[in-house]
Design a protein around this nucleic acid. Sequence first.
DNA 1: TATTGTTATACTCTATAACTATA
DNA 2: TATAGTTATAGAGTATAACAATA
Lengths: 163, 163
Amino acid sequence: MKSLHYSVDDALERLFEVTGVLTDAMSHVLDASTLTPARAEIIWRIGRQGPMTQRQLSAALRCTPRNVTGLVDALEGMGLVTREPHPTDRRATLVTLTDQGGETARDWGAGYRQLARHLFGDLDAGALASAIAALEHILERLRDPAADRIRTDNVVGREPSGP
Amino acid sequence: MKSLHYSVDDALERLFEVTGVLTDAMSHVLDASTLTPARAEIIWRIGRQGPMTQRQLSAALRCTPRNVTGLVDALEGMGLVTREPHPTDRRATLVTLTDQGGETARDWGAGYRQLARHLFGDLDAGALASAIAALEHILERLRDPAADRIRTDNVVGREPSGP
DNA sequence: TATTGTTATACTCTATAACTATA
DNA sequence: TATAGTTATAGAGTATAACAATA
């Protein structure tokens, strides 16, 4: 171990490093498939929660309805989803996985669990609980409204420095 | 506490949640500035490591040289960086922060440290070390070559299921 | 011959605004 | 009047390929 005294900056640096490596890992997976991240998230969400309207997808992905139209167009063209009529609201469409889309979602689920075992499987119950406690602490602090103030207080560039 | 027995899936779910919230937080910061994520990363890296060639930026950002050209064009147009001749290699350009670009980088540094205190400042030395240990364990496992195999083993979509 | 950066072209994700069909 | 989804248009990030200048 390099040091017994860590600073909070050390912790944040590790945290950013983890998010970076994990993000890279995910895009690596996607490079091997024919899916882009946004399209993959739609398959993943429908796989877990069942058919959804585009409006629900728009909210889940925090993007515009227009954007969802394009993503679903592409997935439909790839044969991974279909647009089904909504049973009660004729304005809405239910985005539904095809057999191939369902297979994709299931395989990702298996990969997810395998990754979980790889990352955390060698920890004993105490170490696992401690890791989860650390992650939950970070989540709680990130969701603290005060975090918003910190983030936006330190932004330059809204106005050029000059007059 | 909800449960005393966590699964590895619980841990991975928290980890993805943390990366998602942190990513959202960062794009929130950027929405308040006039910078996009890719452009911001260039400012951030040059602010920490000093002037760099576009080739170095291309490697650091893991994107193509062509992409760097466009990003530096935009930052130059915003007055945040300049292209300076390389002292010894006349093919290369050194991307350098302007005064305004330097100010942006410094303010981000301050925000970084403030966020670090917000996230981890209330932990005692033991809890901080434990959080860092958890993050380092995750990093180590993510970098294990075996992680790659897991990720790419579970990909569907490379070939359509049919013949 | 290899490397640095550029021009040319194309695809994806994203957004705003205006529109149609339905509630 | 409000909502679900689409068309139209535009900006940003990314990639490959071909090319110029330099090493």
